Amino acid sequence: MTPFPAGAVDALAHGLEDYRLTTPTDQQTPAEAAVAAAEYLVALGYTVTHQEHPMPMTPDHWTTIRGLVAWLDQQNGRDQQEITLRLLKLTEESGEVAQAWIGTTGQNPRKGTTHSVEDVADELCDVIVTAAVALASLVDDPAGHLYTKLRRIAERPRTP
């Protein structure tokens, strides 16, 4: 993680707190909170720049994902059946998350506790990687697609 100057972290915290206190709860959005925090940074002399795709995954992550896609393409091709299998792989990985979670609870009296929370986290990471491979197998710009989707999710109101 990139270290931030303590002053910048304080400015962000103050900007967000000010936004939280001065904006009615039903009108608060993540995008507006980000603007308020950025305004505090600018007021203190920090420079705020726009990045076209502030990636939820770094370029190095996407390099790994593209490498996995290339390897799968080389081994299996990329026809409709292969794409279908890559999508179905998500179901398999999700099942492993469920299995690990059940194992952390000891729900099966015959088996007892068989997994740790770290095992569950590892399985969740497998789901994320598998989803990224499937996404990169379907679209030309998976990073941009993910960024756009996350931005839309962040802008959704949090009210029923």
Rank of each mutant, 00 (worst) to 15 (best):
M1D: 06
T2A: 05
T2N: 08
P3S: 09
F4I: 07
P5S: 08
A6L: 06
G7H: 04
G7F: 03
A8K: 08
V9F: 02
D10G: 01
D10R: 12
D10M: 08
A11S: 14
A11L: 14
L12T: 02
L16N: 09
L16C: 08
E17T: 13
E17I: 02
E17H: 09
E17Q: 09
D18K: 08
L21Y: 00
T22A: 10
T22E: 13
T22L: 12
T23K: 02
P24Y: 01
Q27T: 03
Q28E: 12
T29H: 08
T29V: 04
P30V: 08
P30Y: 13
E32L: 14
V35G: 00
A38Y: 01
E39S: 13
E39A: 15
E39P: 00
T47E: 15
T47V: 15
V48R: 07
T49C: 09
T49A: 13
E52C: 05
E52A: 15
H53L: 10
M55K: 01
M55Y: 01
P56S: 04
P56T: 00
H61N: 07
T63A: 15
T64C: 00
I65F: 03
R66S: 13
G67Y: 06
L68A: 10
V69I: 12
L72F: 03
Q74P: 02
N76L: 09
N76C: 07
G77I: 02
R78I: 03
Q81R: 14
E82Q: 11
I83D: 01
R86Y: 01
L88E: 11
K89I: 02
K89G: 02
L90A: 01
E92N: 09
E92P: 00
E93Q: 10
E93S: 06
E96D: 14
A100V: 07
I102M: 04
T104K: 02
T104W: 05
G106D: 04
Q107I: 04
Q107V: 06
N108P: 03
N108A: 06
N108I: 12
P109G: 05
R110A: 11
R110I: 07
G112S: 04
G112E: 03
G112W: 02
T114C: 02
S116L: 06
S116Q: 02
V117H: 05
D119E: 12
D119L: 05
A121Q: 14
A121V: 15
D122A: 14
E123F: 06
E123S: 10
C125Q: 10
V127Q: 09
I128M: 15
A131H: 10
L135S: 05
S137W: 07
S137H: 03
V139S: 05
D140E: 15
H145Q: 11
L146K: 04
Y147N: 15
T148R: 13
T148K: 12
K149L: 14
K149C: 01
L150K: 11
L150G: 06
L150Q: 14
R151K: 04
R151E: 07
R152M: 12
R152L: 13
I153Y: 12
A154N: 14
A154T: 04
A154S: 14
A154G: 08
R156H: 03
R158I: 09
T159K: 08
P160F: 04
